[in-house]
Design a protein around this nucleic acid. Structure first.
Lengths: 235, 235
DNA sequence: TTTTTTAATTGTGAAAAAAACACTTAAATA
DNA sequence: TATTTAAGTGTTTTTTTCACAATTAAAAAA
């Protein structure tokens, strides 16, 4: 037996929703599509899956192609497969979302793709069904971040609690009491306090913390809850 | 522009993990694969996506093909795309999971496929990577059921609270205090008490309830919590 | 008819968790 | 030395969760 005869083959693509946080708002990295159709329009970074690689490998390759980054948080989101989502030819696309430290990607690479960061509230019109993918990714990151400590993936190795709180407040578009927030966060045992301070944000300076990776991996699946009244947020 | 030249096309398939509950344990419906390779071995129900249909439509078609059911709970789970997951030819498969009322499917159809229900603890060896798909589906149904009221989809329209509790206890492999359980469930406002009783389970009989569909759809996304200490369960 | 049996139904008090709330402190700058 | 700014911290109240057992309906048996 050689092949499944009479079945139609389709193109298989991967698209990446890449999240970053600049201290102000949650953003995604978009490129100007470099080829037809829709050449020059804003698009997610994507590409076709190669015969030699798995879909996960393709997603990692495409993420690295744009950012130079390896081994960052990357998770399969959803597969989009409407018959005419690509006008040229039937293409199924497996969307992935990535969380990166916005200061760590290679700007040279992303310049090559004319990439830019867009805050979630100001996403331009995107090619094909990429808008839908972005919406799904926004829902997913909020959902997941409400339950698991994934947002640390957006911060540098060393970060302060006020920075962390700003990130949570930005992602969930809410405000949190800082006493309760720091109590909750520290109670998880996920953080290690460093002796060094970040003097950028204030005169007094805020202590740097870093993740306790042991506890991070151990507790990742536990349902955390840094967000007050998660029920009332529509994720 | 006609086609994306030089790209490789692949087969695109759908596989369904179909859950049912018989009052005893959570089960999945497996078929004996009807064609080579691995003909005669236990398999998920699946099929190739047709040129004329979306992936979601393919999943619904395949679910209906085996069960005769339409409009039941069906959700995309994950896409599996390792290069050699199908030995004949590269095939990506989008796995879906379905929750059905085990008393409502067409047994004639599933007989045609030599289908059988298997409790989760006694899943036979499966073809290709279907084992992995089932594991992912088990994780997902537990995860999702810990947060959202999806398990109602496994019950008939009319059900009793003891039945519901047995379902939760079975899915999470735990025991729950019945006073606390019924308080929690009723507090959601999801249930409407009927005047009729189910006399099958006891002499006294247990009142039937049905879902308040308004509240069900409205609160579906809210984080419910019928399970004591969900953190301690490994989902 | 009465008694027995079986599972359904229901409430309360204790403990833990979450939420609300405001003052003190470190350190740079004026 | 005084002022300014954001960081850091504790207690009380409220809400939620948990632990725990007696009563009741109705069929079956005596």
């Amino acid at each position: 037996m050689q092949k499944y005869s009479k079945q139609t083959r389709v193109l298989l693509a991967v698209d990446c929703i890449i999240f970053g946080f600049d201290g102000e708002s949650l953003k995604i990295l978009l490129i100007k599509r470099g080829f037809q159709p829709e050449k020059g329009n804003w698009s997610l970074m994507g590409g076709f899956v190669r015969p030699s690689e798995s879909i996960d490998q393709a997603a990692n390759r495409i993420l690295k192609q744009l950012t130079g980054l390896d081994g960052v948080y990357l998770e399969q989101l959803h597969t989009f497969g409407d018959t005419s989502r690509d006008p040229i030819e039937r293409t199924a696309s497996v969307a992935y979302f990535a969380l990166i430290d916005i200061n760590k990607y290679e700007t040279q690479l992303s310049n090559d793709y004319h990439a830019e960061w867009f805050p979630l509230k100001r996403i331009p019109k995107l090619v094909f069904d990429h808008q839908e993918m972005v919406e799904a990714a926004k829902r997913r990151i909020r959902y997941k971040a409400a339950l698991h400590p994934i947002l640390f993936e957006l911060l540098p190795t060393k970060f302060t609690i006020p920075q962390l709180q700003t990130l949570y407040e930005s992602v969930f578009n809410t405000t949190i009491d800082k006493r309760n927030f720091s109590k909750r966060v520290l109670a998880t045992g996920l953080l290690i306090k460093l002796t060094e301070k970040d003097k950028a944000g204030s005169k007094r300076g805020a202590y740097y913390y870093q993740l306790n990776m042991q506890n991070y991996y151990a507790k990742f699946q536990a349902f955390l809850n840094f967000i007050p009244n998660p029920d009332t947020l529509h994720l």
